[in-house]
Design a protein around this nucleic acid. Structure first.
Lengths: 255, 255
DNA sequence: TTCCGGCAAGTGGTACGACCAATCGCGCCG
DNA sequence: CGGCGCGATTGGTCGTACCACTTGCCGGAA
């Protein structure tokens, strides 16, 4: 099956087997080859948590080599759509932000993206999250936000504050019940926490101040409790003002 | 969290060559294996547009097989960080939204994400974009926005309106000069335009109304011209209100 | 000299087969 | 009855070979 005699003007070569991958393509980006699409369909049909056929079997069924199949699987794994465990199998899972976070990290350190621009995205997302969380008003989820605030109050070190801060926003996001918002904001938050900490270390300034942090976060929490959408959005924006001067300081170039 | 040193008896076996990939890992997600990190470093060091060494050579230099290397390259290509051209080479490029768009499309059709939640993210990003574009006030870029508005005015078919609508938001995003914002919003816009069109077709309702579209977009353009940040943000939010009832209609399940 | 065509080397894309490593299940033994 | 170990399964990697495409060089023709 390797080489079909005619140096095909039509179908390339290989894959001659009963491959049934369709040739659907539209403006979904350069990743939409037939094989990826076939896999996407498969993942769609199997539900979340389902296990895919073994690579060897799946490769045969799709009429491609195992290596080519693994290429695409790796890609989907990178996006967090698949989870592969050696010795066990490949499973479908919810979209996870790790892949995006990885890409953003890389883009950030390669200077394709600036902290400032990422921060601006985060501000927009968090504002929306605050509004939606307030509108939804889930008492349990908002309770978790309060818990994080209490942790911040009890924090002893700068790292503890950071941790509580992170948890606060994590809880806020989950209080929206909005999967897409959570997905994006999770990725942003992870990247920015690392980046900001680095920058803070470099600048040797802006040690976390507990009172300042509390003053910034508490109004947001109270707006959530009150279910006041506008106030929550405003409080979120206000709370990010603290970061503003950190970003407007003179830049330090990468060494 | 990822690797606890206890398990490893050292480097496994194969690849006996003098691999020098470092073992750096922190909370960057499950994608941070040594090989990916080494590649990330390489990409960081080479600049944008640079060409990577041939796969065969790079594989040898990193002490892995070509297949394993290709796995990671594929991943980075998926994120839009690399571009590979058969016969030519592998090149570093700016982070491109196609990969994210692909993943979102998949997550959307697999029902991991809802149109509504994606839309909510887009609203947040567009509002931010409108504000930043107004603040920046780049006359040339804003001119492109006006051009798209004129195209919308001249549109004859629903598809023409869609195209102009798309161009309008594209121009708006680029008028911010914010790479991260553009990256995310580009991906969202692509996914949502396709999804909304599908839903509109299924519901057999909401044919694009040119006057309505113009009425929604013009105030935003005028706010940009005026450089009024608040008005631009508000106009952006208002302009999305048009979509609201499309999403609150009774759902249709996938067939 | 200039231009064009074709050949050859380089490079990514894929295939196949083999083996390693982790996991899981079944059956044996205590 | 329960724990343990062996073997089958499955993903992870390696190596080799070949195909398809790109690029650039070189020689012949205008």
């Amino acid at each position: 099956m390797t080489t079909d005699p005619a140096t095909g003007p039509g179908s390339p070569s290989g894959a001659g087997a009963g491959s049934d991958v369709a040739a659907a393509d539209f403006a979904s980006g350069s990743l939409s080859d037939a094989l990826s699409d076939a896999l996407s369909d498969l993942i769609r049909d199997l539900g979340e948590g389902a296990r895919l056929p073994p690579e060897r079997e799946l490769a045969e069924r799709l009429g491609v080599s195992r290596g080519a199949l693994r290429d695409r699987l790796r890609l989907l794994e990178g996006f967090g759509v698949l989870s592969r465990r050696q010795g066990s199998g490949t499973y479908v899972r919810r979209l996870a932000p790790q892949g995006l976070e990885f890409a953003l990290d890389l883009a950030l350190s390669a200077s394709h993206l600036s902290i400032e621009s990422l921060h601006s995205v985060r501000v927009a997302l968090e504002r929306q999250a605050a509004r939606e969380a307030a509108r939804k008003g889930d008492p349990v989820a908002i309770g978790h936000v309060g818990k994080a605030l209490a942790d911040m109050e009890a924090a002893a070190t700068a790292e503890d504050i950071d941790r509580a801060d992170f948890a606060f926003h994590q809880a806020l996001l989950h209080a929206t019940g909005n999967a897409a918002l959570t997905f994006f904001a999770d990725a942003m938050t992870g990247v920015l926490f690392r980046a900001v900490r680095q920058r803070r270390d470099r600048l040797k300034t802006h040690p976390r101040d507990k009172e300042l942090s509390l003053a910034a976060h508490r109004p947001l929490y109270e707006a959530l409790l009150a279910g006041d959408e506008d106030a929550a959005g405003q409080a979120s924006d206000d709370h990010f003002q603290v970061w503003h001067d950190l970003f407007t300081q003179p830049e330090m170039q990468r060494p």
